[in-house]
Design a protein around this nucleic acid. Structure first.
Lengths: 225, 225
DNA sequence: CCTACCATACTACCATACAAGTATGGTAGT
DNA sequence: ACTACCATACTTGTATGGTAGTATGGTAGG
């Protein structure tokens, strides 16, 4: 484990955890991959203890599945969990954007606007990875502006399943322009305090994530439960 | 660690985890209590390793706070987290009970009814602890009947903070009759598929949890952040 | 050729020893 | 009396050896 990385994360266990989580959510470690404490301890150059600690945390979030005395593997994407995550996000994001339409800090509104500018940039440069991050940031800023940061963090738990399907979908059909347009309209609705409009767009925005799930299950059957 | 308990939970680590979690949420271990791996390993008669594993899991849920090289203590109740948990539950429970009004399995509806009967029983017997469990069960059945079990589980994370305040409140003012009446009305609304009515009662039901927070902070200041 | 068995090489789980950071109380020096 | 220092007894973090359960491949027996 690199020293800089350790300092950033505070402990070896946290560093391994963050590294693995990033790789799992980005599908760098595809669903079904077997992990094993020993193997990871060798690649990260730490003992099995911090690796085991990271496995415990990942299992708690449903990102890996630990089978006692048999092995540990990256959890398959659960279609039901994907739909539930979408459901949760729809309800909470609709409620939050209504709050945002009532009152939203000016500086956070500015953050949204600069985020949109960066989105345009990333689309022009065909930088899908950056665009995905900006998408996440856009919604996170909405939550934070409404003082609902903890809610956003809680959503992230189940979001792991949803996000992995979103990445799969974007592999097959990068439809960034459509997403950007929705983001822009939501920004304007918040700025002009049009709650009903904002909620409606958000509802459609969230519905996008689920429509193509059957297609993905057919194209990547080995990734799904 | 008792052998029966170990068999029930699968591993020593899980057993310690479940035990501590139950004690924390029930305020048997009050907020601020220092824990220490060594101490717990002695009381549970296991080594530090499974105890440490349980600490990691509890920290992941925000139930304990681990300060490296200094100690571990039961996390104080965070007022902001309590309000956010209430917010999350309100949005999700409103959406779920609307779904329930559209369609709800007959056997689960029967479960709700028998749950209500048990609630009456527990109120007569002044069994607050049992009543609290039944309250939780009532809402869990609603989620499960709508195939939103994962959503319920996710809520539980943040619910730890909310539930601890609810217990404090019920220590000072056991108002079980009022809660029972709301539960009964929600049951009838679901049965008669009156979505708007059900949502309205649920909204009031969720609002109860937050009103007396300032009073509790004044009465138990050492429990809050 | 097929089947039952067993040695072997994995796995996660647990106990233990050591390392490193921190709080605390006593003591020497001013 | 007060302050600076340090030994000591804590704490969590990490490394490692051993245990028990499981999958697998080869082998002996039918």
């Amino acid at each position: 484990m690199d020293e800089r990385m350790l300092q950033k994360s505070g402990s070896a266990g946290s560093a391994v955890y963050q590294h693995l989580k990033q790789q799992i959510v980005s599908l760098d470690l595809p669903p079904g991959t077997t992990l094993s404490e020993k193997e990871m301890s060798l690649t990260f150059q730490v003992s099995r203890t911090p690796v085991r600690e990271s496995f415990v945390r990942l299992a708690q979030e449903g990102l890996v599945l630990v089978l006692p005395q048999r092995g540990t593997r990256v959890s398959l994407i659960d279609s039901d969990m994907v739909e539930e995550a979408r459901f949760m996000r729809e309800q909470l994001e609709k409620a939050v954007i209504r709050l945002a339409c009532e009152s939203f800090p000016a500086d956070r509104l500015a953050d949204l606007e600069s985020n949109l500018t960066e989105q345009q940039h990333s689309i022009q440069q065909r930088d899908g990875k950056r665009m995905f991050e900006l998408d996440e940031d856009f919604h996170r800023i909405l939550f934070e502006g409404c003082r609902k940061r903890g809610t956003w963090n809680t959503i992230q738990q189940m979001n792991a399943h949803l996000n992995r399907t979103r990445i799969l979908w974007l592999w097959t059909d990068p439809h960034w322009e459509h997403l950007y347009e929705q983001h822009r309209q939501m920004f304007l609705a918040v700025k002009q305090q049009q709650a009903d409009l904002a909620e409606q767009i958000m509802k459609e925005h969230m519905s996008l994530n689920i429509a193509n799930l059957p297609v993905l299950k057919e194209r990547y059957p080995e990734y799904f439960k």
